[in-house]
């Protein structure tokens, strides 16, 4: 009975939860964007001398763009800022700073936070450049690492 329940649950939940920048379908109230019909989650992996992220996150229009933090090697307390750098397009990724250690599991998986509200595709016809900055302070110096991925708003 338990196995059957888990199987049904997996079949219901999994198709709606895709990773790696693909749009997710869900209706809910987003703290950043209000009533939306989904969110797109892209993971950012970072640690000592290492950063990884999908090059272009495809965010469905009128949904929330969410970045999931995956720190390595004691970077849990590092501040991560996600902000649009593309000045040609309307600024829909305003700039948000969070630490993995301060992001418990809630509306999104642990370490994930909202970074932007995707407008209509007509407003942002081109992929939007943004940066992901990591700042880690040690006793002697401050490490500043960053990656320059893009987000494309799709229908």
């Amino acid at each position: 009975m338990k196995k059957a329940f888990l199987l049904i649950l997996a079949m219901t939940v999994l198709p709606a939860c895709t990773h790696g920048g693909k749009p997710r379908i869900k209706n809910f109230d987003s703290p950043l964007c209000g009533a939306v019909n989904g969110f797109t989650l892209s993971y950012f992996i970072y640690g000592e001398g290492k950063m990884l992220m999908i090059p272009i996150s495809r965010v469905k229009e009128n949904t929330v763009f969410v970045v999931g933090l995956r720190p390595l090697d004691g970077f849990e307390d590092s501040a991560v800022t996600v902000e649009q750098t593309d000045g040609k397009l309307p600024k829909w990724i305003p700039g948000t700073t969070k630490k993995y250690s301060e992001l418990p599991k809630g509306l999104y998986p642990q370490g994930a936070f909202e970074v932007g509200c995707a407008p209509d595709t007509s407003e942002v016809p081109d992929p939007t450049k943004f940066k992901v900055d990591v700042v880690k302070s040690t006793v002697d110096y401050t490490i500043r690492n960053s990656l320059d991925p893009r987000a494309e708003v799709v229908k």
């Binding site: 001398g49 950063m51 990884l52 999908i54 090059p55 990656l147 991925p149």
Partner: peptide
């Protein structure tokens, strides 16, 4: 560059 569909930048610390 890109590795397994992810942008990557890696340097020994």
């Amino acid at each position: 560059g890109e590795k397994k569909k992810k942008k990557i930048l890696e340097v020994k610390t």
